[in-house]
Amino acid sequence: MKKFIKRDIDKPKLTIRTFLEPLLFLAPFLIGIIIFTVYPFINVLLISFQEGYNFLSQQFLSYGLENYRMIFQDENFINSLKNTGIYMFTVVPISTALAIIIAVLLNQKIKFNGVFQTAYFLPMVTSVTAVGLVWKWMYNFDYGIINYLLTLFNVDAINWLNDPKYNMPALIIYGIWSILPFTIILLLSGLQNINEQYYVAARADGAKPFRIFRRITVPLLAPTIGLVLIINIINTSKVFDELFPLFNGRPGSAYSLYTVVYYLYDMFYVKWELGPAAASATILFILVFILTMIQLFIQRKWSNY
């Protein structure tokens, strides 16, 4: 093995063969990436800075921050940032906490592990839209199963989907359910990477289960938890598919539940305001970019664990 490592130090000579052959292998892939990722990325950035559209020449006169100024004065956009923030910072911590418990339980020596895993992971592969409609049915004011269950506990029925006050909680509950499988999988794989010997040693020292959980599991799982938090924050920052079926394609029953991606969709597809749409897309990118940097920082910091 050792002798081949040297090969990589060996700089390839630039010949027709070393240039053309890799290019042929890469071409189909790179063409797709350039046309549908690189080009639109640059294009959207440019559009976001264009201003002063001249209808006669059909050209933009200059570049500037006009679009950004516009969206930051738009109540809906400010709302969308706020809503996305609320959604992220409720769904992510709650689902992570629940997922830790479930992952730890699934990591025990239990029977029917396959059955449990199937049950817990199933929502990951099913259409968010279709399941969203199921939740819409379960949230139904008159005949929904959720309100029926609430009445069993002597709680008044809640108008989840038509009372703006309860729109966000409805979205959050569905969001938690829908993000749980992915979160559990990551945490479970993190748990499985913890060396069994730590547990054996702790048990030999007479530690009780809860103590083992607090003093061994949680600290050793910390890097995975950090990673899961960031990945889920990135994912939830793009919340849209969950919102759409619940409220018949509207951002909540009183148009108060705009999210960043919904705003982007609305500006682009419904109102055809490309400049503001591009500006909000750029804001989304900056958000994701910062979060990804934090993720990479965490990964690097913990990679020597």
């Binding site: 080009y39 990325f41 294009n43 559009i47 969709y265 897309a281 989304l284």
Partner: peptide, 10 residues
């Protein structure tokens, strides 16, 4: 890192 949602416009 680029979210697909950003690219839909172009």
């Amino acid at each position: 890192m680029i979210p697909f949602e950003m690219l839909i416009i172009t």
